[in-house]
Design a protein around this nucleic acid. Structure first.
Length: 492
RNA sequence: GGCCCCAUCGUCUAGCCCGGUCUAGGACAUGGCCCUCUCAAGGCCAAGACGCGGGUUCGAAUCCCGCUGGGGCUACCA
């Protein structure tokens, strides 16, 4: 009996990309569903593109998402180390075995020579394959090359004559003709292993049973299968996911704006909402619901329900889902909404770096007043900035619509006097003041409410006037009304 | 160019494997109405898709072939 073991193997060259997180999530879901293990392995064999900061940020984003691993670079495990640059000895031993068994050989061709071969093939209109000129070098020929100071790469000796077929769990059988497969380089001339080789060795040694990865690796798979063959190993089960596309149906990239988990985290998206959204991309849980807890996803996840077609990353739907989760949090765990809001406010410079308990209490009240207008953390900034500034910024269109009006002068003047003369107001009292003023002036309450909102917030949209009045408090209301009045008088 | 993958509303998808129950279902987004101090939320309604062409069949979104379109790979990147 073999327990399910899945893995995610990022190469640390930046923040965690949503496409990678998405694939990792399915591997994780599958492992958890099957009560197996999920492994995190760092593929940093390309040293020039890998950084420690990137590794740290990737681990950090996974923690944030709530995706945990049973074995990995930070927690260790029986098959470690889990960072490829720390596994050089392992690769060296294994390539040695291949060399000794005649499954691999030294190749002294230089990159320039290889390029020339490639170009020649291109010009002739032929598909390129390595010429194989180093396949059967004699010892003396090798000595000559070594004498010239050439450092060899190590290539796989491919002798296969039948098609290599990938038994893909999502795509079904995919066959590759043998003449499309040439002698892949396993080890660079500097001795470091290449992706296809290290990946195979590690997956085998880490007893990975299922590999769920992006489609872009499909053409690598026959090469890897040949390496498993050379070792006499049984390959894991493989499933190729489609690739997430941008709105223009091209591979999701920086051109499309936000593509890293960190971007969404900064904007104040919720990890559970992101995961819920990911689950619905390319996978179908079986019924028409849209909202699932992670536990429900784990319970339902099956590889066979994964789709083949590339989904478009639709932020509108993500935001809708996030809004639903936000509302839920607002009702049951407002502290988290406050945390997220404070983070966004800090980012926007609307609160200082030091946040006191009183500040938090105030943010909580703002958040309550803003209510479901906050779909994403940063909405507290886009919809509620006026709660945090000394002088509100007037939206020109709002001014045109409700403020630039002689009647507004009268109405706001009276409102100012009544507010200034009275006590602090709660929501109910604020409504009373406005309604009574409307009755006294013989106008509809709208005639007060709209200009008052513009005077107090600078805009036509936002929370109800009475609740925002209560939260602003007497002093700030008077100041803002005075400023609006002064502005109005200056207009005539 | 070669090899490979994919193809249902604008978007995410159900249906396809085991043809009829599909006048193609749900959700996001969009439009309208209701609610209402604005916005948001909510409720109701509307519009909106089987890429094209051939087969097979009494019957095709579902099976087969071709085309078109999109994508990936074609590195001493992963």
């Amino acid at each position: 009996m073999s327990a399910v073991r899945t893995r995610f193997a990022p190469s640390p060259s930046g923040y965690l990309h949503v496409g990678n997180a998405w694939a990792a999530f399915f591997n994780w879901l599958f492992a958890r569903h099957a009560d197996g293990q999920f492994i995190l392995r760092i593929e940093d064999t390309d040293r020039s593109r890998s950084t420690d900061e990137s590794i740290q940020s990737i681990l950090d984003d996974f923690h944030w998402l709530g995706i945990d691993w049973d074995e990995g670079p930070d927690v260790g495990g029986p098959a470690g180390p889990y960072r490829q640059t720390e596994r050089s000895v392992v690769y060296r031993q294994h390539v040695r075995a291949l060399l000794d068994g005649g499954h691999a050989y030294f190749c002294y061709c230089t990159p320039d020579e290889l390029d020339a071969e490639r170009n020649a093939a291109q010009i002739a209109g032929r598909p390129y394959r390595y010429s194989g000129r180093c396949r059967s070098l004699t010892d003396s020929e090798r000595a000559v090359f070594e004498g010239e100071g050439r450092a060899p790469t190590i290539r796989l000796r491919v002798t296969r004559e039948e098609p290599v077929v990938v038994h893909d769990l999502i795509l079904g059988d995919v066959a590759f003709e043998p003449d499309a497969l040439d002698d892949a380089i396993l080890v660079r001339s500097d001795g470091s292993p290449l992706y296809n080789f290290a990946n195979v060795v590690d997956d085998h040694l880490m007893t990975v049973t299922h590999v769920i990865r992006a489609n872009e690796h499909l053409s690598n798979t026959p090469k890897q299968l040949l390496i498993y063959d050379a070792f006499g190993w049984v390959p894991p089960q493989i499933a190729h996911l489609p690739m997430i596309l941008g709105p223009d149906r091209r591979k999701l990239s920086k051109r499309h704006g936000d593509t890293s988990i960190r971007d969404y985290r900064r904007q104040g998206y919720l990890p559970e909402a992101l995961l819920n959204f990911f689950a619905l991309l390319g996978w179908h849980p079986g019924d028409d619901r849209e909202i699932y807890t992670v536990d429900e996803l784990i319970a339902r996840f099956e590889i066979k329900d994964l789709g083949k077609a590339s989904p478009v990353f639709d932020t509108a739907k993500l935001t809708w889902i996030n809004g639903l989760y936000m509302r839920e949090l607002m009702a049951h765990n407002p502290t988290r909404v406050v945390d997220i809001s404070v983070a966004s406010l800090k980012g926007a410079g609307l609160v200082g770096p030091e946040v006191t308990n009183a500040d938090r209490a105030y943010v909580q009240r703002v958040v309550e007043v803003l209510g479901d207008r906050i779909k994403v953390g940063q909405d507290v900034v886009s919809t509620g900035a006026f709660f945090f500034v000394d002088e509100v910024e007037y939206d020109p269109a709002a001014v045109e619509q409700y403020l630039r009006d002689p009647a507004a002068l009268t109405v706001l003047g009276h409102l100012r006097e009544r507010v200034a003369a009275g006590p602090e107001l709660d929501r109910v009292a604020a409504e009373k003041v406005v309604r009574e003023l409307a009755a006294a002036l013989g106008v509809h309450s709208r005639a007060i409410i709209h200009p008052a909102r513009v005077a107090l917030t600078g805009r036509t949209t936002g929370p109800g006037l009475f609740e925002l009045m209560a939260l602003l408090g007497k002093d700030r209301m008077v100041r803002r009304l005075d400023r609006a009045l002064a502005w109005l008088r200056a207009q005539v």
